[in-house]
């Protein structure tokens, strides 16, 4: 089975340590009930709208924008090694109860570039099965919102 290789120095990241400066003006002030970080800095208006919908969705228990969090996925485009930084992690109660939430990685796409299919394939074929096979980081899934 495919298994994820964790960062040996820092295998588990935390929203606890996220702090950064930005000059971007599109931002969403998060609900403290659902997000540990007080702002989502948005790359597009769609992301702010996505936050609004997440906060009103009855299955969502927590979410975070993956910025300054260190969640990175190495992938290959042709022979070139690149890093994919997914947009959001959303913790969803999908019927397994509050102690076994689904960690859903969401990519919010304004438009789909050529590398999108390589990122999606890497997440679906390697990263998600790899992390799920570890068994120690809960259940994970990936979805692309086009």
């Amino acid at each position: 089975p495919i298994k994820a290789m964790l960062d040996p120095y820092n295998p588990t990241g935390s929203t606890n340590f996220v702090n950064f400066n930005t000059s971007k003006s599109i931002r969403w002030e998060t609900s403290s009930k659902l997000c540990h970080i007080n702002w989502v800095i948005c790359d597009s208006d769609w992301e702010a709208e996505f936050c609004r919908v997440l906060e009103s969705h009855d299955r969502v228990r927590a979410y975070v924008k993956n910025q300054g969090l260190g969640l990175e996925v190495p992938y290959k485009m042709g022979s070139e090694v690149r890093k994919y930084i997914p947009d959001f992690v959303v913790r969803v109660d999908d019927g397994h109860g509050p102690d076994d939430l689904l960690n859903l990685i969401v990519e919010v796409k304004g438009y789909r570039r050529e590398d999108a299919k390589d990122k999606k394939a890497t997440m679906e074929n390697y990263w998600v099965p790899g992390v799920n096979n570890l068994g120690t980081y809960g259940r994970w899934a990936f979805a692309e919102l086009c």
Partner: peptide, 16 residues
């Protein structure tokens, strides 16, 4: 975006 997000979450909830 709202129906799309609902659909997305319902779909992953059904398949996982």
């Amino acid at each position: 975006i709202e129906p799309a997000v609902n659909e997305l979450i319902e779909n992953v909830c059904m398949t996982h």
